[in-house]
Design a binder for these strands. Sequence first.
RNA 1: GCCACCGUAGCUCAGUGGUAGAGCACUCCCUUGGUAAGGGAGAGGUCAUGGGUUCAAGUCCCAUCGGUGGCUCCA
Length: 693
Amino acid sequence: MPRITLPDGSVREYPEPVSGAQIAASIGPGLAKAALGVKVDGQLHDLGHVIDRDARVSIVTEKSRDGQPDPDALYLLRHSAAHVMAEAIQKLKPGTQLVYGPPVENGFYYDMRFPDGASLSSDEFARVEEIMAQIIKANRPFCRYEMPVGEGMKKLEREGSRYKIDNAQKAIEAGSDRLSFYATGKPGEDWEDLCRGPHVPSTGRIGAFKVMSLASSYWHGDENSDRLTRVYGTAFANQKDLDHHLKMLDEARKRDHRVIGKQLRLISLNEDVGTGLVLWLPNGAIIRRELEEFLRKARSDRGFVWVNTPHIGKLNLYRTSGHFPYYADSQFPPLVDAEGLSRSLLAHGGGCGCADIANAMAAPEVDGFLLKPMNCPHHIKIYEADQHSYRDLPIRLAEFGTVYRYEQSGECHGMTRVRGFTQDDSHIFCTPEQLSREIDIDIELARMVLAEIGLNDYRVRVGLRDPQSSKYVGSAENWALAEKVCIEAARGIGVPYSIEPGEAAFYGPKIDFVAKDSIGREWQLGTVQVDYNLPERFGLNYIGADNEKHRPIMIHCAPFGSLERFIGILIEHFAGDFPLWLSPEQVRILTISEKFAEYAGRVHREIGAAGAFRVSLDDTPERLQAKIRKATEEKTPYMLIVGGKDAEAGTVSIRHRTEGDLGSVPLERFLKLLREEVETHGRATILDAVRPS
RNA sequence: GCCACCGUAGCUCAGUGGUAGAGCACUCCCUUGGUAAGGGAGAGGUCAUGGGUUCAAGUCCCAUCGGUGGCUCCA
């Protein structure tokens, strides 16, 4: 006699156990038709799932109440589409072994292993989609059936499905006493798969789908295990949602910082220089310099002092800090002189393969230099350059410090994942009493930076250590202390925060700012990290009021993270339309004909004389339309069009790169507005001031 | 590092075994025009590199280098 509570609070009683489909039907024929699954006390199930006790139930349909695609519906659709895709691929490539096919953020994937000699190419996606379309058109039901584990295992063994047997064993270990299978159609006749479910009622409910891409993966994510092929797809309830998704992907592609970075001549990646090494062209260097100057001032205002340190340091420095032993795989090999190298190779067996060199270098007596993977050890040595009293603290050191990390070749990506990059790094050394205030200063700085850039939608992530892992340095007490401080600081920020074990740096927990860009993608930007461990490893101290030595605490803070990555993200966020203060070119004067070159030249000189504006003059004999098109494509924020009328009246006609003609204003007024927009970082714009209402 | 795909003019790309192409950009000439491409001419390529198959290779095969999408990784 189950009493069913619906999302609107109403309660329905049923005389006997009832399925999700029956509940939907009892509410209305429209809902029965739209139903894709059922959620019982927060658990998603097949629509056919039978409820035999009191429960809170909602019927899952394609749209949630806010009109957006329902996440549960997408889960069901995509999980089901994964089955359909697997069936299609197995039909196309007989003998393919299935591994695991879950829904993921924007779709689903299925890991599979092709028989020897076979593979899937993206050229075959259309064929896979054809077969999928047939299966969907046939509208076969997803039929769940269960077996006791013994019988189920026997069935899997008969089928010789190594990976599925492993999945089943995992389920049994997790406490399952039955195995569930889903047939796409009739059990025993049609295609089926060991699967926990749930699924949509039938294949016909998969409204729109697409096979997206191929990747490789490892079984259990272990690189020494079997290599699998991961086929990605996506599915939506209808074509419109799929089209919208594809449009977003296309929009993201159009904003790709590698494409825009090339078009706007911001940066260059050159294979002769090396993978993951960014060349800043003059235009990109302007953006970088503006950001650096902005942060330089912001830091100086907050009591930071500027230092400079070299790009390399001795190996022992990084042995002490822990960087060298813990991150040996992801740094460039040490720099050792030839004599030292041959000495240590001899001492370690005499081989000179990569592994031999790596082993020889790891030996504790080897001396040499390392390209710095982080700036902190150098800054620590700057702290140590003087004896410190508690009266000196806090000491706030800052540097745009370039660091090098040997990312695996497949990891490098444009400006966002590189091998050499400049951190806007800082290290505060303070007393325990000062810690909370110093963290606040760093957090305020990081938030101010985001606000000035216009990234106002962000959340905070507190990265704690993974208690299972041994990669961290320092004592448990230090970690507990630092983690507590970070969590409290995050709580005080007033934006949503999450706590994520395993996301800490190796020396301490961190507070990361994760911002949403203009098309809704999230990026990890600034970071504030609390560190009790490096001061201890280096034996740092200050003399307290008690005339005793005490250990300072360090705070690492980088509001941008790295300039390469940050500017790469900004390129995508703005799609190249940088705010005026960051634009490589701010104003371009366009002559209507060469007859007005003299007036245009005067305007050019006056703007130049009025301040450090980046202004250029296009007085070529091209037609105006062509010049406008060129300047627009080059994303110049403001074009000033000057011809006979302007020359007579002493005005300029303003054109905005995206809003078009803004009419003409006297030159002095334009200059005043220009200065205002640059100085306010775009809070007051020329566009707003003169746009015809 | 692994899997799949790709590498042709400065850029974007066409060219599936038979004389290396287009558009844009560039240079020169004409055009002097009020809000997203005026017209004409010219110059520009070891088809990533090295091997192989073939009478013949940008095209087919192998290797190497580089790129892209993922995987793994990400201090």
